[in-house]
């Protein structure tokens, strides 16, 4: 299998990348290549121009910012997996990372590539949904910010314009002592999840849940927030009973049928994984509260 012929461009600044993207017909951005390269090898994608972002140093960074962390779009998934700042400020992302593909793909694959490819079963988008991530996007008209909830617009489609590129993702840290958990079911470690659940919980001194977020991956074209489950937890004690009732609401979230699993199976899994993730997050929130 060979990629179709294309003109190859390797800019080393964001400005040059944007300018190439805006001036070339039928151009495609190459990030870590773990999704686009298979599409090129199988000729599902046939760009006339390939703009390789791997030499744009300004896109690869992890830095603490007010209230959270900012991760450059070309930061390798491996860097995030081993980042102490990520583990401290966004432990949910750190827990999800080892389940993103395999060692060999995380060494190359990038955070921005996963977000921009926008597979509805991918772990990084699911974490972005749970954390209400904000994305910085830039194009010929300058930079703009998009909330993650407005980013996926269909199957493998995002709010990115044809002449825009993703620069960074901002993840707001939850309160110190919050609980988190990422759970997924896949047939083989490293495969895309059939369903995944990303949970975050904050509790007060009495153990009452004061804040909760639950995102489910694999249900459809994009990760979904389980709003009914979140509402069922807030203001209540994080007991096993409350968590089970909250998780059960996930069984009625719309899901897709595909070659990997029927919708009903995904809905059942959503309930099971939500329950496990919420229970683990609640337990961690409790443990840190007592400390």
């Amino acid at each position: 299998m060979k990629p179709p012929p294309f003109s190859y461009h390797a800019p080393d600044t964001i400005e040059d990348a944007v300018s190439l993207l805006g001036s070339l017909e039928n151009a495609k951005l190459l990030a870590g290549g773990q999704s686009l390269m298979p599409m090129l090898n199988m000729r599902y994608a046939q760009p006339d121009h390939l703009i390789d972002l791997n030499r744009v140093a300004a896109l690869a960074f992890i830095r603490e910012e007010a209230g959270g962390i900012e991760i450059g779009a070309m930061t390798r998934q491996r860097e995030v997996e081993y980042s102490k700042d990520v583990a401290r400020l966004c432990p949910l992302l750190a827990e999800a990372l080892p389940q993103v593909g395999h060692r060999q793909t995380r060494n190359r694959g990038t955070v921005g590539g996963s977000l921009a490819h926008s597979d509805g079963a991918a772990e990084i988008p699911t974490v972005a949904a749970a954390l209400d991530a904000r994305l910085t996007i830039t194009g010929p008209g300058g930079a703009r910010e998009v909330a993650y909830r407005d980013f996926p617009v269909g199957y493998l489609m995002t709010a990115l314009g044809w002449d825009e590129l993703l620069v960074a993702v901002h993840l707001a840290a939850w309160a110190p002592g919050h609980g988190w958990a990422f759970q997924e079911f896949a047939r083989r470690h490293g495969d895309f999840a059939i369903v995944s659940a990303a949970a975050l919980i904050e509790r007060d001194a009495a153990g009452i849940v004061t804040r909760a977020a639950l995102a489910l991956g694999g249900m459809g074209a994009a990760p979904v927030r389980a709003e009914a489950a979140e509402a069922a937890l807030i203001g209540r004690p994080g007991s096993e009973e409350t968590i089970r009732a909250a998780a059960d609401t996930c069984r009625s979230i719309e899901a897709q049928d595909d070659v990997h699993a029927p919708a009903a199976y995904r809905q059942k899994l959503a309930g099971v994984l939500a329950c496990r993730a919420l229970a683990r997050a609640a337990q961690r929130a409790q443990a840190s509260r007592v400390r």
């Binding site: 990629p3 190859y8 390797a10 290549g33 773990q34 390269m37 298979p38 090898n41 390789d52 791997n54 491996r78 395999h102 060692r103 060999q104 793909t105 060494n107 190359r108």
Partner: peptide, 21 residues
């Protein structure tokens, strides 16, 4: 994973990298 090689010491799938990279 059959084509796994090390690039700057890190394992990578050689079918998912271009030679120019």
């Amino acid at each position: 994973g059959a084509c796994t090689v090390l690039v700057d010491g890190r394992s990578a799938r050689a079918c998912l990298m271009l030679a120019v990279q």
